[in-house]
């Protein structure tokens, strides 16, 4: 169990350092089961910091999302480090960003938070609808304890955690300058049961499945924006000349959009499941990513976001890569 006082003390100590610009963590949200990314710039902010099974956001996104304002003439750019709290999956995003040189190691200070699984708000709201009061949650002996308005409730972990947590093989941060709490047991399997059921269907059935899902896409781009690996200065989806993907919203363009998004994460997706969590129309986006994770692992024995010294998968090759599909 995590001691919040210790976490906050660590945060205060961290942001008091001269070489830290601010700390990115989580705070309780405005209602119910929500939490929100929290930017800690002073000691007061640190008091609101939390880490609980409700802390769903992958904060690594903010390392690359932060807007760089022009430095006034004569002033020195602020080169202080950004401190960031990461769960296991989030830490893989940091590593992958380092691999791709999206960020520099000396510009981040990583606070690792071993994680026993994050609550899927949709699953929880099915069991406990209409909760306005802020709810706190914690892990305890393999269960998730919630302080609901009606009283304390314990839920078996596997019933309410996100799908990504059921298959998670890296609950402990793979990179950290300092760790809060103790390492947790790895429970996820290396298998791909979550997508096997779809793979065994025939092509028509698979298309029927995806057509239905893709058809409901509203192109809000939240899946792209929330993704810690989507940090191109100009995204292919935004380009107009040439327009790789038209702005019109229909099955054709939506499919192209989702294929582009998934493919651009091939060998890069660190399975944080944020795309799926934020999708307002509940498209099972991580199925696409998991399919590629599976292929990358089986064909190239590669797992992204583990080794900061690794080379990006698609920027390299082996002469004996599998080529059974080539005529």
């Amino acid at each position: 169990m995590l001691d919040l006082d210790k976490l906050r003390a660590l945060a205060k100590e961290t942001i008091s350092r001269d070489d830290i610009k601010y700390l990115i963590g989580w705070r309780q949200g405005t209602y119910g089961f929500r939490t929100s990314p929290h930017f800690v710039g002073n000691l007061e902010d640190a008091e609101q910091l939390i880490f609980s099974p409700l802390c769903s956001s992958n904060l690594a996104t903010y390392l690359t999302l932060a807007e760089k304002r022009p430095v006034p003439r004569g002033a020195q750019p602020d080169t202080r480090r950004v401190a960031i709290m990461v769960k296991g999956c989030d830490s893989r995003a940091v590593v992958q960003q380092l691999v791709e040189q999206g960020i520099k190691r000396e510009s981040v200070y990583v606070i690792g938070c071993p994680c026993e699984g994050i609550i899927d708000r949709r699953k929880l709201e099915e069991k406990v609808p209409h909760t306005l009061e802020r709810v706190e949650a914690r892990w305890e002996n393999g269960k998730i304890i919630l302080d609901l308005p009606a009283g304390r409730a314990a839920f078996p972990r596997d019933e309410i955690v996100a799908g990504k947590c059921l298959t998670c093989r890296y609950p402990n941060p793979v990179i950290a300058d300092v760790t809060v709490g103790e390492d947790v047991e790895v429970r996820g399997s290396a298998g791909f049961e979550d997508i096997n059921w779809l793979e065994v269907k025939n092509a028509q059935e698979r298309w029927a499945f995806w057509r239905d899902k893709v058809n409901s896409c509203i192109r809000c781009y939240s899946c792209r924006n929330v993704c810690p690996m989507c940090y191109c200065a100009e995204c292919i989806l935004d380009k107009l000349n040439p327009a790789w993907i038209q702005r019109s919203v229909n099955v054709s363009e939506n499919t192209a959009f989702q294929l582009a998004r998934a493919f651009h994460l091939a060998g890069r997706c660190i399975e944080c499941g944020e795309c799926e969590r934020v999708c307002p129309v509940e498209i099972p986006l991580s199925h696409l990513n998991r399919k590629l994770v599976k292929e990358v692992s089986e064909q190239f024995a590669f797992t992204p976001g583990i080794d900061p010294e690794a080379k990006p998968l698609l920027a390299g090759y082996r002469p004996n890569d599998r080529e059974a599909f080539i005529l």
Partner: peptide, 26 residues
């Protein structure tokens, strides 16, 4: 070599969303 890696993956992705595997060839 780079193309081979890319298309090995793209081919699987297309197939996964239900595009007949005969439609993409290399």
């Amino acid at each position: 070599f780079l193309a081979r890696r890319r298309f090995a993956l793209m081919r699987e992705l297309l197939n996964f969303v239900g595009v007949d595997e005969r439609r993409f060839n290399m």
